[in-house]
Write a protein that binds this DNA or RNA. Structure first.
Lengths: 153, 153
DNA sequence: CTCATTTCGTTAGCATAGCTCACGATTCCG
DNA sequence: CGGAATCGTGAGCTATGCTAACGAAATGAG
């Protein structure tokens, strides 16, 4: 069943690397895991879901504003918005006074989708978090704030 | 200079979302920032650097083993290894006893590259971390361990 | 009012990064 | 010896970001 797969590699350990190196690896790995959690739901990707969540939570805004909140360049957001509109989860309407802008908003279907899928989407992560101690969750809660502050700069 | 860009969107706040949602957003955002830090160094991407670091730190191993450590599927790792080999930072050699396997190892150039570039690569993150308090860094250090444990499952 | 400048959203094209499926070579084991 | 398992890889797809360039609309100096 199990073949020999041991070489001179040292075992993976809680290591003495720098904080930057450890944090980078942790973030890269968790990001990969999170993106992989879209298998059953074929239509909406993590990026789209993230944008739709932010839009739903913050209310109608312009595409540029949403791009800024998600820390993404406007052209990247354009594609996300187009995909969500095509799925009927979001509506585009003209800005009342400024002809250059558009107002995007989560549609009724989009809001329903979020309500229904938010737990399914984050089920994997929720389960992992549930396995932790309350202290560990507190650490992650604080870390999420700190990371967000760093990434927002 | 400043155009009106206010709609009915609520301001972005330290919010009352679930831990899962907050952690997801924080990780996705930081990951984007980290990948963007490759501007000066044209040749080696974050994924390649991450793999090379792990290989250097853990010693010679098979491609499959490296893929497992990086939490990536073997075909994904093949491309990373090929790119690193082409750059001369890694060597492939046949396994002494198992003809199916190969042994990959950071070359002298690869080790030198890591030693020289590790700080440059992580400069952006290092600078952000330096702006934090010691307490905040401790939180991130613990969080990195917890996240890695979750992602490793 | 006129027109150069700025802003907004988008299109086009590129690079990275991951996946699954399939396949050939090799090894293991009954 | 021959079927089954394993390893690495090739092919092809999708997602996710970026920059450059552009057209439409708004602004503001004259």
């Amino acid at each position: 069943m199990s073949y020999a797969n041991e070489m001179s590699a040292r075992p993976e350990s809680a290591d003495e690397r720098t904080l930057a190196a450890r944090l980078r690896l942790a973030v890269v790995r968790l990001n990969r895991r999170l993106r992989a959690q879209r298998s059953e739901d074929r239509t909406v990707t993590l990026t789209q879901f993230s944008a739709l969540s932010t839009l739903h939570k913050s209310g109608p805004m312009s595409p540029g504003e949403l791009a800024a909140r998600e820390r993404v360049q406007p052209p990247s957001m354009t594609r996300v918005i187009s995909a969500l509109e095509e799925s009927g989860l979001l509506t585009r309407s003209p800005h009342p006074t400024d002809g250059r802008q558009t107002v995007i908003e989560a549609s009724a279907a989009g809001k329903a989708y979020i309500a229904a899928e938010v737990s399914a989407r984050e089920r994997w992560l929720d389960e992992r978090l549930a396995e932790l101690s309350e202290d560990e969750r507190t650490v992650l809660r604080r870390a999420a704030d700190i990371i967000d502050r760093m990434a927002g700069t």
